[in-house]
Computed example of a mutant assay.
Amino acid sequence: MKDLKTHLSILLIDDHPIVLKAYRDALDYTTRQKGWTFDITEARNSNEALRHLERISPVYQIDLVFLDIQLPPSDNGTVISGDDLGLKIRQRSPQTRIAVLTTYNDPYRIHCILQNLQPEGFIVKNDLEGDEMFFIIRNIMCNPPYHSATVSQALRSVISGPVLDKVDRRLLYELSQGATLEQVEKVVPLGRSGIIKRKNKLKFKFGIPDGDDKALLKVAREKGFI
């Protein structure tokens, strides 16, 4: 186990003010009960989060990010969900620990996030209690990974499932926005035939090989991929 660091710089990323307040309250409780101190910064959307990432330098470091996966896309189109933002955090600041927080409880969706992002912490929001914050942060920083009860259960129940990469998620997002094949070609660098093949692979992954695009989007939404 690594040496315990009791003063941390934390970035909270969530588009719901009430959730951000709950995180702050839990961190305040940890300070009162355990004596840990935190420099807390908030980002309420992908745009604000990207600006914070641009500030990272030798004199401005982020120890831990609490990342909501269900974020709206950024204005510049480089981020379509928290998955993409997490990958950008990895690229920009490899030493920063990432704690994913989400309401998703579909085992396949959880499995996909773990495979793509490999966060040091993964918590389903309904599992989070304020008095557990100290235990969660300590494990994320010193002995990762930390998985909440629902995530641990999902890991036990999923042997194999649809793992989607960035191109898959971009394709699903564009289709969900009503983009035509010609429009998708401009942002998904596969060419027309490649896009069609990728859609067919997605349908196969989701168990609807003969389904149309509407059926594909329905299943993807149910599983939390869009």
Rank of each mutant, 00 (worst) to 15 (best):
L4A: 08
L4C: 12
S9P: 00
S9W: 05
I10L: 08
I10G: 02
P17I: 05
A26Y: 03
D28V: 11
Y29I: 14
T31W: 01
R32V: 13
G35C: 07
E42D: 15
A43H: 07
A43E: 10
A43Q: 06
N45Y: 06
N47Y: 01
A49G: 11
L50R: 04
L50C: 03
L53I: 12
R55G: 01
R55Q: 14
S57R: 01
V59F: 12
V65A: 09
V65K: 02
F66G: 06
L67I: 12
P73Y: 08
D75T: 13
N76E: 13
T78I: 14
T78Q: 14
G82I: 10
L85A: 12
G86S: 08
L87W: 09
L87D: 11
K88A: 10
S93Q: 03
P94S: 03
P94A: 05
Q95N: 13
T96G: 02
R97D: 04
T102Q: 01
T102G: 04
T102R: 01
T103I: 13
D106H: 15
Y108S: 13
C112W: 03
I113A: 10
L117H: 05
Q118Y: 12
G121Y: 01
K125W: 02
D127G: 05
E129N: 10
E129I: 06
F135R: 11
I136V: 15
N139G: 06
C142A: 09
P145Q: 11
A149S: 15
V151L: 14
S152C: 08
L155S: 03
V158E: 12
V163P: 02
V163F: 04
L164E: 08
D165A: 08
K166V: 14
R169M: 14
L171W: 11
Q177H: 11
G178S: 11
T180D: 04
E182Y: 12
Q183P: 00
Q183W: 07
V187M: 09
V188A: 07
G191S: 02
S193H: 14
I196S: 12
R198W: 09
K203C: 07
F204A: 15
F206M: 15
F206V: 13
P209D: 10
D210I: 07
D213K: 02
K214M: 04
V219P: 00
A220K: 05
R221C: 02
F225A: 07
